[in-house]
Amino acid sequence: MLTCKQISQLVSQSLDRPLSWSERVQLKLHVLMCNACRHFKHQLNQLDIAIQQLKNETMLDQTIQLPIDAKTKILQAIELDKKSI
């Protein structure tokens, strides 16, 4: 039997790699019986969704702009780079 700690690691890895058949079975059974791990799994799913929403919100936020001085710096860097060739 896997502990909650081990299950929590599997839940996390299930978002990063395909689990093996036996890992999937153990995870499923454990989560059926254990509220805490079921909540944890739900939390990680919510977290993924929320992260995506945060990225979307940033992309839509017109107040986030490339600062003017960064732009100037970039154009200067290009000039310098050209000379060095």
Binding site: C4, Q6, A36, C37, H39, Q43, Q46
Partner: peptide, 10 residues
């Protein structure tokens, strides 16, 4: 390996 502080739903 048991949760000390059980996760709750958000």
């Amino acid at each position: 390996g048991r949760w000390l502080d059980k996760p709750q739903t958000f």
